[in-house]
Amino acid sequence: MRFEGSDNYVATPDLMLAVNAAIRLQRPLLIKGEPGTGKTMLAEEVAAALGMPLMQWHIKSTTKAQQGLYEYDAVSRLRDSQLGDDKVKDIGNYIVKGTLWQAFEAGEQTVVLIDEIDKADIEFPNDLLRELDRMEFYVYETRELVKARQRPIVIITSNNEKELPDAFLRRCFFHYIKFPDRDTMQKIVDVHFPDIKRTLLKEALEVFFGLREVPGLKKKPSTSELIDWLKLLVAEEIPVEALRSPDQKAIIPPLHGALLKNEQDMHLFERLVFMAQRNR
C-alpha cells in the first residue's frame, strides 16, 4: 500500500515519503503549511488513491476531544424521561458516536482527517493522546471499551495558530508543505488544466511568481488562488497578449482580484505598478 500522488494531486518526494511512513508505521501524520497549499486535499487524495472511505472531523474553537469519540445526549434523555418514554431505560440510546468511533468500528480501514487541529483549545491534542496511540477508548456511560478493528490512517492539518504540545508531536510524523517551486507549480497546473495553452500558462506563472515577490503584501497568493485565477482566465478567454505588455511596461494583470484578497494589498500593488510605469 503506497501513496504516489494521483491524477489530480502532485506530491513531492518528501511528502510521499512522509505519507508512506505514516501509513506503514500507523502513526498520525501532521501536515502544516501556508494556507492554500493543499493540506486538506491531501487527505482526500490519499483516501481516493488507497480506495478507502474518508472520515472528516473539522475542528472549531469550541470543539472538545470527547466529541470525536462520542457524546452523551443528556438533554434528549432528560426530555424522554419527563415524557415517560421507554427508550430512557437504556443509556445506550443516547450515546451519539463521533468520527473516531465510526472509523474504529468501520468494516474496512479508513482515512481520518482531523482538520485544523490548531483551532481548538490548547488541551485538545493532549486529550487525544491515548486514543491516537492505542486506538481505543472507554465509554464510561455504557462501561464498554471501544477498540479499533483496523487502525485508521490519521491525517491532521494545522495552520500554526497555536503551538501543539510536545507529547502530541512526538507521536506524529510531521511534514511541512512548502510553497511549490516553478517546476512543481507547472505540474500542479498541468494536473488541473491539462489543455491550457502553453504560452498562456507560462505568462500566467510569471505574473503569479512576480506577484508573490512584491514586497509588503499581507497575504501572498497561494496555489489555490492561482488555480482559481487560471480558471477565470480560461473561462473569460483572456488572450495571452493581455498578460504580456508589448512595450515592456508593467501592467495590472486582468482579473487580479482572484489573486489578491485584501484591499490594502490591492492598493499597494496598483501603486507599485503605477510607479513602475512612470519610471520607464
Binding site: 518526494p13 518528501d14 515519503l17 512522509a18 512526538r170 510531521f174 511541512y176
Partner: peptide, 18 residues
C-alpha cells in the same frame, strides 16, 4: 535523500527547526 526526508518527518516537528 529518502533517509533525510524520513529522518526529518520523524524527528523534527516544527518547520522553524528545519
Amino acid at each position: 535523500e529518502d533517509f533525510y526526508f524520513l529522518a526529518r518527518a520523524s524527528l523534527v516537528k516544527d518547520e522553524s527547526h528545519f
